[in-house]
Design a protein around this nucleic acid. Structure first.
Length: 572
RNA sequence: UGGGGCGUCGGCAAGUGGUAAGCCAGCGGGUUUUGAUUCCGCCUACCGCAGGUUCGAAUCCUGCCGCCCCAACCA
């Protein structure tokens, strides 16, 4: 009994992999592994889908199989071409490739229809003319078995005729439905003669008006899997009750293979909402700026925000695959994002809230271009030149007029290091007429140029910009979209939108970045040293760079400062 | 009054009869020209509860308890 793949891929073992390994060992499906990712094109993909994508494509990859991308487009009322395009882009961005295997359930409409006829001919399906309400009534409930439809015993001929006329468009929506004849007394309500075809006179985004009857999920999905030779059909937990019906469909129709449905728990995160219905509301009510708003948990939103595919794949891997309904701590996602960005983002300097600082002993008009490496620990990864002049901007937050214990940035009379430059001392604090802090006058210790000097030690290093060269930017600071750990937890009479974080987006104008970023392409990711990771937004123009804060750096000082006092403050 | 799942550290999650991995979070410390990164420690879980089988059980059996899903002509 060996589960060798684990060690090789460094991914934790899980029950799905175990099943596949066991199937390969027993020679089931001749050892082939064919999976599929089957989205309905009725919305954008979000991070919850990422788990399914990684599982399906990942399993196929791992076992030398293939994974199909199949659109489950059987409900023309909710589906759109825009979604089929965005879904493909997102799956590709995540790093997966379906090769030739792009399919649509709608491509099987003719064939599925044939299988429906096959069922009718075998006496295993019938046209039911009860209304939706009546069908519901006849279905019974959890405790009461259903009762047979009065149309259950229509003759094969009549069923065939009726079904043909349904297809021909002779009847209005809802007039008839084709039902599988299974067992109205089953303890599993899905088996109580489930409808498998309904009349829906709607234009389909691919088949247009060719059809006015459409197959239902259970029938279309199971047979599509079988038609494609899917071996392992991975879906989420809520479909467990559907498995008997899935198997019934495959077993009662002449399809070339017998796939196995396996259910796993879907992904959930604290502070994130992954309900398609609700995400759609956010978009439609314009609470956000679209599906790709960087505050959205959609793959397109996260991409625009600066999250990387590697990070998202990484979380999916760490999270594992099980049958528990679980909610992952959002910090795991944040960790994965920081981890990858830390390893890949060039460091540059940007100032979000500028405070002017004058180096009084720096000659007026003199500019020095300092060579600064993009990665402090690896010079081979490149460098850029940063201009240094007499007038600088530093982060307002890095100056405190009144010292506090533990503070090691700038204060009147204290020293701090200017990154890549040397040690400066704050000699004078200048205020404006209104008494507001206007600028700092400092001196640069020329003995410490470069940043260090024997015997000199300063605890703080701050970032800065040459005022004359600083590039104006618009910084969009993003934060969690919801304040509640479970955004879907809404009090009586409340709305989930009430749980939103009004500060989830703060637009900062009047921020600056070093000139090396001039003309940076949208999608460029960098770290603003000591602040956060940023990503250049497509809204940027030649006049104004727009950057999105992907995620802030961890900040143990802020945490320290925010701590409640250990003991009552001393008096006096 | 039904059926289907699931219960292992704060959050995930390994473990499949031999005496509880790992990750995230949290806490403490070292290094550091990012209070970042990194490194080193700590986080002492009686495995939902109660019985039973066994030399030995998180792992097997029984009974409870708790949580999730299911009664669309949605997927």
């Amino acid at each position: 009994m060996t589960t060798a793949p684990d060690a090789a891929t460094d991914t934790p073992p899980n029950f799905v992999r175990e099943i596949i390994v066991a199937d390969q060992q027993t020679g089931k499906h001749d050892g082939r592994v064919v999976t599929r990712f089957p989205p309905e094109p009725n919305g954008y993909l979000h991070i919850g889908h990422a788990k399914s994508i990684c599982l399906n494509f990942g399993s196929a990859q791992e076992f030398g199989g293939r994974c199909h991308l199949r659109f489950d487009d059987t409900n023309p009322a909710t589906e759109e071409l825009e979604y089929v395009q965005s879904i493909q882009a997102d799956v590709r961005w995540l790093g997966f490739d379906w090769g030739e295997h792009l399919y649509f359930a709608s491509d099987y409409f003719e064939r599925l229809h044939g299988h429906a006829v096959e069922l009718i001919e075998a006496g295993k399906a019938y046209v039911c003319s009860l209304s939706a309400d009546e069908i519901k009534e006849y279905r019974g409930n959890f405790y009461k078995p259903g009762t047979d439809s009065p149309y259950r015993n229509r003759s094969v001929e009549e069923n065939l005729d009726l079904f043909a006329r349904m297809r021909a468009g002779e009847f209005a929506d809802g007039a008839h439905v084709l039902r599988a004849k299974i067992d109205m007394a089953s303890s599993n309500i899905n088996m109580r003669d489930p409808p498998i075809y309904r009349i829906k006179k709607a234009t389909h985004h691919r088949t247009g008006d060719k059809w006015c009857i459409y197959p239902m999920y259970d029938f279309a999905h199971s047979l599509s899997d079988a038609i494609e030779g899917i071996t392992h059909s991975l879906c989420t937990l809520e479909f467990e009750d559907h498995r008997p019906l899935y198997d019934w469909c495959v077993d009662n129709v002449s399809v070339p293979s017998k796939p196995r449905q396996i259910e796993f728990a879907k992904l959930n995160f604290t502070y994130i909402l992954l309900s398609k219905r609700r995400l759609l509301q956010l978009v439609q009510q314009r609470v956000v700026d679209g599906w790709d708003d960087p505050r959205m948990p959609t793959l397109s939103g996260m991409r625009r925000r600066g999250y990387t595919a590697e990070a998202i794949r990484g979380v999916c891997e760490r999270v594992g695959v099980s049958k528990h309904n679980s909610t992952i701590d959002i910090s795991l996602l944040e960790h994965a994002v920081r981890e990858h960005l830390n390893a890949t983002s060039p460091r540059v300097m940007g100032v979000l809230d500028p405070l002017k600082l004058v180096l009084t002993n720096w000659p007026e008009g003199q500019v020095e271009w300092i060579e600064a490496p993009y990665f402090a620990d690896d010079a081979s990864r490149g460098a850029r030149k940063v201009p240094l002049g007499r007038e600088l901007y530093i982060e307002r937050e890095d100056f405190k007029e009144v010292m506090v214990k533990g503070w090691h940035r700038l204060s009147p009379g204290t020293e701090v290091r200017l990154r890549h430059v040397g040690i400066i001392k704050c000699e004078e604090v200048v205020k404006d007429a209104a008494g507001e802090l206007a600028l700092l006058r400092c001196t640069l210790d020329m003995e410490t140029r470069g940043g260090s000097a024997p015997g000199r030690k300063v605890k703080g290093t701050i970032h800065w910009l040459s005022a004359a060269h600083a590039l104006p930017i618009e910084a969009r600071l993003y934060d969690r979209l919801f304040l509640k750990e479970n955004p879907g937890d809404v009090p009586e009479g409340g709305h989930f939108i009430d749980n939103m974080n009004p500060q989830a987006l703060q637009v900062v104008r009047g921020a600056f970045v070093e000139p090396s970023l001039a003309g940076a392409a949208p999608g460029t990711r960098v770290q603003f040293e000591r602040l956060a990771y940023f990503c250049v937004d497509p809204d940027s123009s030649k006049d104004l760079l727009v950057v999105n804060r992907t995620i802030s750096l961890r900040d143990s000082w802020a945490k320290e400062e925010g701590k409640p006092a250990g003991k009552p403050a001393g008096k006096g």
